[in-house]
Design a protein around this nucleic acid. Sequence first.
DNA 1: AAGGCTCAGATTGTCGACAAAGTGAGTGTA
DNA 2: TACACTCACTTTGTCGACAATCTGAGCCTT
Lengths: 224, 224
Amino acid sequence: MTFFNENPVTAADKTFYQLRKDIVEGDITAGAKLSETELSTKHAVSRAVVREAINRLESCHLVERKANVGARVVALTPEGLIELYQVRESLEGMAARLAATNMTEHEIAELQLLLDSHSDKVKTSANYYQEAGDVDFHYRIILGSKNNHLISMLLEGTYHLVRMYRVQLGMAGERVSTAFDEHKHIVQAITNRDPELAEMLMRRHILYSKNNIEQKLLKPNNDT
Amino acid sequence: MTFFNENPVTAADKTFYQLRKDIVEGDITAGAKLSETELSTKHAVSRAVVREAINRLESCHLVERKANVGARVVALTPEGLIELYQVRESLEGMAARLAATNMTEHEIAELQLLLDSHSDKVKTSANYYQEAGDVDFHYRIILGSKNNHLISMLLEGTYHLVRMYRVQLGMAGERVSTAFDEHKHIVQAITNRDPELAEMLMRRHILYSKNNIEQKLLKPNNDT
DNA sequence: AAGGCTCAGATTGTCGACAAAGTGAGTGTA
DNA sequence: TACACTCACTTTGTCGACAATCTGAGCCTT
C-alpha cells in the first residue's frame, strides 16, 4: 500500500512516518502520552525533530496537544468513528462525482482491470480484499477526482484515522461480497460519465459501511 | 469575527496567527518566499518559533514547503478556487444535513434571529452582509453539525483559504439579496428538521456562488 | 479528615550555534 | 557565445542548553 508522496528526506520526516505507523497500528496505545524526551532518546534524534513530528501528527488529528502539558494519542470512541465516516461519505462522494468527469479513459480502464483482478480473489481469500483491495479502490477514485484539496484532506488526514480505527477495533474482512458489488456499480457509473450517480452510489457504499460498523459497536458482545 | 479556539498562549501561537493574518489579507503577497531568519528578526522570536508557525501554515495549506529549500505562500489560481468551492460544497452540505438533526431548538432560534437582523441590514448597507454576516451564518451551521472533524477541517483549513481568495481577488458584496434568500430557505429546512433538503439547499447555495465566481474569473475585463 | 498551599521534580517552550544542503555568480573550456 | 564546473554564500535542518510552566506529593491550616 503506497501512499501519497512518501519519500522521507529529512529526519523529521522519518520520525513522523514511524510515529504515525506506530500510532495507527496500535504499537503506541490510544490515549497514551507522547513524551518528547523519551521519544527523542528512543529514535536517536533531537527533541526539535520529535516536536516537529508531533506537530504534524496533530495536523492529521492523530494526537491532541495542550500547551505546556504535552501531546496524547487521540482516544478511539464510537462517536469519533461515526464522525469520520460522515466526513468520508461527504468527501468521497464528491471525489466520485469529480472522478466521473475528470478521470482519463486510461485510468478508468485500469480501474476496471483492478476490479477484475479482485473478482477472482474475493472468491478465494475473502479477507484480502478488505485489507488492501478496498483501500486501493477508494485510493484511485480519490486521485481520479484531480482535486488537490480533496486528495490531501483524505489521504493525509482522514484515511490514516480510518485505518487506525480499522486496525485497532479489528474490523477487517467484513461485508466483502456486497461491498465488491457496490464497487462494480460505482465503476459502471464512472465509465458512463454519470457524476451524480457515481456520487450517490459512493455515498450509499460508505453509508452502508457506517451502518454495518454502527451495528457492531452497539452490540459488541456477540462473540462470547 | 471570532474564530474557533483562538487564544494565543505561546509565542509560536502568536506568530502563527499573525502570519496567517498577513497571508490571508495579502500583506505577505501570494507566492512570496517565507525566510525563517528574516521573519524571526522581524517578529523578535527565535527561528524555532517561526519554523513551528510555518509548519502549521503548511497544515492549513496556506504555504507550501520543500525540504532544504524553504516555504512559499501558495499561489492563487482560478483552479484552486474552484477546487476549494467543490470541497466546501461537499463538506458544508454535510454540515447542513447534520445540523438539521443535531442543532438544539435554542441554536435554531438564534440562527433565525441572526437572519432577521441581517434582513434589515441587507436593505441598508449591502456590502456588510457578505463581509461578516455570510461568514457568521455558515459558521453557525458548521458548528451546528456537532461533527468535530468536519468543524476543524472547515474552520482551521478551508475557511482561511476561502477568505484569502475573497480578500485578494476582491469579491465581496456580490450576489447579496439572492444569497440572503438562499440562507432563509436553508434555515427553514433546518427548522423543519429536514436533513436532505438542508443539504441540497446548502450545496446549491455554494454551487451558485462558485458559478458566480467562475463567471467573473473567465471574463475579468468587464470593468475597464 | 478535608481542603488549600508550597516547593521540588519533570516536562514543555524558546533560544543560539553548528552541520548539511541548496543557490547562483563567476570562471574556464569547447 | 553556450555550456558545465567550482566554490563561496545563503538558507534550512539538527542539536544541546536554558527558561517557563505544569504536576503532584507533602505539609499546614481549619
